[in-house]
């Protein structure tokens, strides 16, 4: 079933995904601890990480549950938070190898997160092998679920100060992914800065605008990518991958 070259791609995916996995574990532990402390049944906490597999949604979901939000509100909030993945999946769909069957695409789609998306599409090769993306997604998914179990069943005595410091891990990874490209390409710098400015303005006026965090990320991403695509014609500002 798996040829030698597929296996090489898969292991390459695991390797490239390792920093994501390392970043996920403390956050997933924190999720497990939170679910436990809010008296969410263990099986529900475990199931959330298995089938929802979206950090922010899970945190907000259990919080909303505890404050007594309706199921409808929780589901709609979850949808709004995750609409940005629509954009990411659309981008990824142009980067995976073209001869992949629909079931394969449906499988790879389950693993799309902010982190696996960013790491996959910033790879140098033009077309990504399905086994590479599978390996990358698999290690992130495994780490997220492993961390959830740790949080629910084992981690009771992790000092608060360590937990809060680990909260920065994934942001540091995003920084590590973005900065080298910003250094090399002015169009990338302009687009990224524009996204930062739009998102910060929307974030700080959230009370007035009444927009969720997930929605402002979508708007900032679309607007700045659209401006970039308009400003920089191919050739003079060829975006470097």
């Amino acid at each position: 079933m798996m040829t030698v070259s597929n296996r090489v791609d898969f292991f390459q995916g695991l390797k490239v995904g390792l920093p994501i996995g390392i970043g996920y574990i403390p956050i997933a532990v924190a999720f497990g601890l939170l679910a436990k402390s809010l008296a969410i049944p263990n099986i529900v906490g475990v199931l959330m990480s298995l089938v929802i597999y979206a950090g922010a949604s899970q945190f907000i979901g259990v919080n909303l549950l505890v404050v007594g939000a309706s199921f409808g509100d929780i589901v709609i909030t979850t949808l709004l938070l995750n609409l940005r993945h629509f954009l990411m999946s659309a981008t990824l769909s142009q980067r995976v190898e073209t001869n992949i069957s629909k079931p394969w695409r449906a499988l790879l789609a389950f693993g799309v997160t902010d982190e696996t998306f960013a790491v996959s599409v910033l790879q140098k090769q033009d077309k990504l092998s399905r086994y590479f993306v599978l390996g990358l997604n698999a290690i992130a998914f495994a780490a997220w679920n492993f961390g959830t179990w740790l949080g629910i069943f084992f981690a009771t005595g992790v000092p608060e100060i360590i937990k809060t410091s680990m909260g920065i891990a994934l942001y540091a990874m995003f920084i590590g992914l973005l900065i080298p490209h910003v250094k090399k390409s002015k169009p990338v710098l302009v687009v990224a800065m524009l996204a930062v400015i739009i998102n910060m303005l929307m974030y700080w006026s959230a009370a007035v605008l009444g927009v969720s965090n997930g929605f402002s990320i979508i708007v900032a991403t679309i607007v700045s990518a659209a401006v970039g695509a308009g400003l920089y014609e191919a050739g003079e500002g060829e975006v470097e991958r």
Binding site: R84, L87, M88, A90, T91, Q94, D114, F117, A118, V121, L122, T164, S165, G167, I168, Y171, A172, F174, I175, L177, L178, H181, V182, P187, V188, V191, A192, M193, L194, A195, V196, I198, N199, M200, Y203, W204, N213, S216, I217, A220, T221, I222, S224, A225, A226, G228, A229, Y232, A234, V239, R241
Partner: peptide
């Protein structure tokens, strides 16, 4: 071209201002 800019735009928006409050 729009699609090639998406990752960088998304990363910028994902990092700021989230990173500032990421430690509580």
């Amino acid at each position: 071209r729009f699609m090639t800019f998406i990752p960088y735009a998304a990363l910028g928006a994902l990092i700021f201002p989230g990173v500032i409050t990421s430690t509580g």
